Simulated scan of single mutants.
Amino acid sequence: MAFDLEEYLRTAFRDKLRLPTVPTRDGAALPPSARLPLKRREVAEVERALQSQREEFRQRMERLAQRRRQLGRREEELRDVVLKFDAFLKVPGRGPGPGPAVGAPADSVPAPQASAARRERALRRGDEERARAAGQGAEVARLRRELEGLLRRRERLARRLRSLRGFGDYLRSVLAGMGQFQDIPAMLAHFGALAGARAALAQQAEAGQEQLAQGRARLRRYREEAGSKLLRTNDELTRLRARLEDARRDVLQGESHWARVQSTATQKTLLLGQIKLAVLNLFQLATARLEVPTDVALEDTEAQLDTVLLCMQDLAAISAELLPRQPGTCPPRLPVATSINPLRHGGARVPPSQE
């Protein structure tokens, strides 16, 4: 029976004397005002479980006290039996029972040895009972410590409930003012859904911020690359502008040279025109005086000049024939005509040097 009590206490106080696990929610996602009904519900459940455990513990303590009283009475009875047995052993020539008579066989167990064995068994049984009682006392002390811990936890939860009572009143006033939800848990569930959506949006915003930071980094690298390219382009543009200035100076020099060439050409053209006019006048005078056929074009200045030269040669030849030659003088030499046909007009004779 003592063994059954020990097993009962060991299993009962280990498995049953425990508070039920209260389902908890993520407190970090809810504000203190939202956690108040949850804590109040948890405190109520803990209070009910603690009350039931206290009643069960009281009943078990009563049974344990009754068992201890029984063990005490049993120990007193065993002590009385041991004392009586000791007194019986002190009487010479008597045993605890009918025992063998005087003159019994030699192989039978003597009465003092049998009484000593029974006494030893009784003492060992008493030690075992006292050890069991001590173990039960230790278990009772442990259960009392657990009860004290549960009471302290209850006191802490009660203090926290009193501190959060204002939030509960606030939630009830909000629920009454809104009129959208049936009770506070429904409102808290809706608020939890909103908090989850807000957390998801915050996570998306954080991801967007990371993408924005990456985009800014890429933009900064692109600006640096574009700046370096722009510097190289500016250097190239500066070199091209320098080359353009050199080309412009060369163009200005070429234009000035071309202007001088054009001016010189204009002067030469003007001089050539004057020469052509002079040759034409001489040609017209010569042909008019000498009656030379004028079958030469007006633009053929070379032919006109040849005609004038031929006329001058004819006149020089005629003058040489008519005037006597003075000794020591040579007739003037005229330039040779460029025309290959000798000129014949008015019966005048062409000089032999021109034939």
Rank of each mutant, 00 (worst) to 15 (best):
M1W: 15
R10P: 09
P20I: 04
L30F: 08
L38N: 01
R40W: 05
A44C: 01
E45C: 04
L50F: 05
R58I: 09
R58S: 12
R63I: 11
R68D: 07
Q70M: 11
R74T: 08
L78F: 09
L78P: 07
D107R: 14
S115H: 01
A117I: 08
A117L: 14
G135K: 03
V140G: 04
R142N: 01
R142H: 12
L143H: 03
R145H: 10
E146N: 00
E155N: 12
A158H: 15
S163F: 09
L164Y: 07
F167W: 03
L171Y: 02
V174P: 02
Q180P: 00
Q182W: 03
P185N: 04
A186Q: 12
L188G: 06
L188C: 01
F191R: 06
L194E: 07
A195W: 06
A197I: 04
L201V: 08
A207L: 04
Q211P: 01
A213R: 12
G215S: 15
R216Y: 03
L219N: 01
E225R: 04
E225K: 02
S228T: 06
S228P: 05
T233A: 15
R249K: 11
D250P: 06
L252H: 07
A265T: 11
K268T: 11
K268M: 14
K268H: 10
L272G: 12
Q274W: 14
I275D: 13
K276N: 12
T287I: 00
A288W: 02
R289T: 12
L290W: 00
P293R: 10
E299M: 01
E302L: 06
Q304E: 04
L305T: 00
L309H: 05
A320Y: 10
E321L: 08
P327R: 06
C330A: 15
N341G: 03
L343T: 01
G346D: 15
P352Y: 07
S353D: 01
Q354P: 07
